[in-house]
Structure formats: structure tokens, C-alpha cells
Design a protein around this nucleic acid. Structure first.
Lengths: 238, 238
DNA sequence: GAGTGGTCTAGACCACTGT
DNA sequence: CAGTGGTCTAGACCACTCC
């Protein structure tokens, strides 16, 4: 109930974080409501709301009307992975970007792809992205010509389908999967590794509203890893 | 300049999203300032701010004081991956969770781990988590006894180090890496697969302020994949 | 029904930064 | 310097949901 008169919503967030961290408010504990906290901190309720809402978005607090705010029981670690354009990704590593189109044909996609992309005619684009001359990632992509007819006349020799779509084909949502796969003969040949070598693979499908735009498999050369930081804030180790 | 009188900040967000999506505001375009938008939408500036701030946090907008707000040039795809306790992860798949402690010894960690965990004495804990009797993930963990001395007397036969730390050792931040590795002899034996099989591996280190708490390598059984959705909002395909 | 968070408002001042 | 976003306030009403 002491007045602290801290500086802003971040200071309030820090203090709440400290109490969670110090187990003054253990997991499951219902913390004081916004009005009380606002009084304690000597600020407006909106400021408290801003601080607590941010923590709730990170998964540290559970907030429900009437039930109040409680410290999350199972502090899920929420890792945010930024996925940029491949060219940018390579250049950010300080390497020279090189791109080579392997094939670009209208074709009927295999069943698993057809299931999401639809049965309409599709464009199959394969390409290899390299950094400083070393193969970096093999892009195997299907583009729905029904959703993106312009792709038929696009020239993917100068610009990768990855970037072309970014500039020409908006999407509303998508899904991504990360997995480990054994290199196929094609993977191995292109990525300059042995068949069966463990590859980090990203599979992505994007939609524009209800229409699938593109489905892509990105097979990265051995040694690739996605790295990210978690919690500038608090949690519990696990 | 038409007044729309929409419902709330989400409606404003939707409209902004629509304009980005429809290329009315193409990538790089500087959009009107908050005051103008507030007038157009017939709401308070704070409401516009709420909508635009949320979009900026998702990476769709770049906002800078004085420079204004512009549509992001390189809409990085920001995927959020939720990492929960392993037991919970397995149970959420509807499987029966089983856990077996393999070893728990005080030891000196290998150089790469020692580099982050420090040279102090550490506890080495290895365990296997299974779902419905099938091996799910092999946990290979080092715990700093300097940071978490209580771990020395903890009993990891009944509760995994994963969960014990969650309840006893708070952390402030950490880093995670996702990669693909070939199964070692130990991996293969425990995960019931062939040596050299591609495994999805998560490597995580967590700190409590400046003190490293624990470093863990999680090697998942073949077939494991992390799946997540991107953008309930808009972007561009890539 | 009543308590809690969710949101909105109208106005204000501050902080950063491009010109 | 001046324009823009960042934040705070004091108050209000609403929406959900537990009791």
C-alpha cells in the first residue's frame, strides 16, 4: 500500500516482474486489481492496465474479467522467430548473396501440396540460394496460378520467387513448421552434402483470405540453426 | 477524410490492414499521422495509437517520432513459438506421459557448456520423456550449482529437472536455438532410431540476471516438428 | 448482481528526431 | 525548431463472468 511514484508503465511492469520473480506473488497467486495497484503506484488505472496487459500478452499473467489477474501457472516460454527474405538473411550474415533458378514449370503438385493449394494449375519453382558461393538453402515452391495468375509471366531468373511474391502477392495468414529431415538425393546434390544428412527444414503455406497462395519447402544446408532470445522479462527456468 | 465511426481499435486495425493489403498504402508509404486518422475515424487519438502500435509490434509498420508511420518495407514474418513444459506438451497430444531419469551427477561440463554456464561445479542430469510408451525427447541438462545450489538435493526421479527448475529457479532471460542434428549413438539408442538419423534439436540456456542457471539440449524423436501460425493479420507472401 | 478487466475519450505534456 | 509518436490522466461506460 506504500506509494512508490515510479516513472511509467515500464517501471510498474518491472516492479510486478520483481514481485513475481521474488515469489512475493507465486504462480497462481491472484494479484491486486488495477484500481488498487494504481493507488499503490500513484498513477492512473490505464497505466497499470498497460503494464499488466503487456505481461499478459507475454503469457506471464492470466487476466479474466471478474476473476482478476493471476500469475500464470505454466509460464509458457514464448519465443519469437523473425523470418526475413532469404537474400536479406544471407546478407545480414555479411555474405555475398547468390541466387540460381533451377526450374520453373507449370505442373500438378503432389498430393500433400495439392491438399492445401487446391487442385488448380500451379507453378513449380525450384531455386538455390547461396552465400559467398556456398549453398545456403534449397527452395522448392508451388504457387497457385488461380490465386496469383501473374506468376505465370514472372521471370524468376533475376528475382527469386521468395521476393517476387513478397512484392506482388499479399497474404493474410499462413502456417509454418520447423522440422529435421534427412537430405534426399536432390537435397544432397544441391546443398553439397551427403544423402541422408540431417537438414533443417522450414515448410510454409500462406493464404490470402481463403485462397492458398503458395506452399514452400526450404531445406537449409547442414549447420543451419535458428536462434532467438526469450524473455527480456521473467519466467521460470525449464 | 470520410468519417467511418467504426467500433473500436480492432476495427481501425482492420481498416489499416485492408489498406495495406489492397496496396492503397504500399510498402514504404507514409500513412497519415495519428491526429488525422483519429479525425477520419471519428475517435480519440489514443484509439488510433492502440491500433497502430499493435501493428508496429507485429512488424507491419515502422513508427518513428517526427518521421511518422510507414508501411514496413521488409515485412518480416514474426512467428511466435510457445514452448511449454515437456509433460504438458505430451499430454496435450492426448498421450500418456512417462518420464525416466537416466543419470544425475555432479560433474564438470564440457567446454562449450562451461563457456556459458561458468567453471563452477555443475549438475549433469539426463532423462528421457516418453508419450504412450514411445520415446519423445531426450533431455541432456547442465545445472549451475552456484546459481541453484538447491538442485544438489533435489530428487529428479519423480519430477523432471525441466519441471523442478520451473518451480524453483526463476530466470530473467535466455536464448534458444533450433537445429537439425544427426543422432549420436546415445540419441539413437534412447530414441529408438538409427545412429545418424535426423533429429530436431532445441538448445536452450537461461540466466537469472547475470548468472547462468541451466543449459539444456533437447533431442526430439524423428518426426517431431514445431508448428505455428503466422499473421492473423496481413503481410506479403514470401 | 457485482466485481473485474477492456476500452474509449479529451486533453496534456514529453521525447525523439528530421529538417 | 517543429512535427510526430509515446505516454499519462481522470473519468466514464461496457462486457464478461464468477458467485
Amino acid at each position: 500500500m506504500t506509494k512508490h511514484h515510479v516513472k511509467g508503465w515500464q517501471a510498474i511492469q518491472d516492479e510486478v516482474l520483481r514481485r513475481i520473480h521474488a515469489r512475493e506473488w507465486p504462480p497462481g497467486h491472484v494479484i491486486p486489481n488495477e484500481v488498487d495497484l494504481a493507488q499503490e503506484f500513484g498513477c492512473a488505472r490505464a497505466t497499470v492496465n498497460r503494464a499488466l496487459r503487456a505481461l499478459a500478452e507475454e503469457g506471464l499473467l492470466d487476466r479474466r474479467r471478474k476473476a482478476g489477474t493471476r500469475v500464470a501457472l505454466h509460464p509458457v516460454t514464448r519465443a519469437t522467430v523473425d523470418i526475413s527474405v532469404i537474400r536479406q538473411e544471407i546478407e545480414e550474415r555479411g555474405q555475398h548473396y547468390d541466387y540460381r533458378l533451377l526450374a520453373c514449370d507449370a505442373a500438378s503438385p503432389p498430393a500433400p501440396v495439392r491438399a492445401t493449394l487446391g487442385a488448380g494449375s500451379s507453378l513449380h519453382v525450384t531455386a538455390l540460394h547461396s552465400g559467398d558461393g556456398a549453398p545456403y538453402v534449397f527452395e522448392d515452391r508451388w504457387i497457385s496460378l488461380k490465386t496469383t495468375p501473374d506468376a505465370r509471366s514472372a521471370d524468376f531468373t533475376g528475382i527469386s520467387a521468395n521476393e517476387w511474391l513478397l512484392a506482388h502477392a499479399p497474404y493474410t495468414h499462413g502456417d509454418i513448421a520447423f522440422s529435421a529431415e534427412a537430405a534426399s538425393a536432390q537435397d544432397a546434390s544441391l546443398l553439397n552434402t551427403a544423402e541422408g544428412a540431417p537438414l533443417f527444414v522450414v515448410t510454409r503455406t500462406t493464404w490470402d483470405h481463403d485462397c492458398a497462395v503458395t506452399a514452400v519447402r526450404l531445406a537449409y544446408a547442414p549447420g543451419y540453426r535458428i536462434y532467438t532470445r526469450i524473455g527480456a522479462q521473467s519466467d521460470s527456468a525449464g
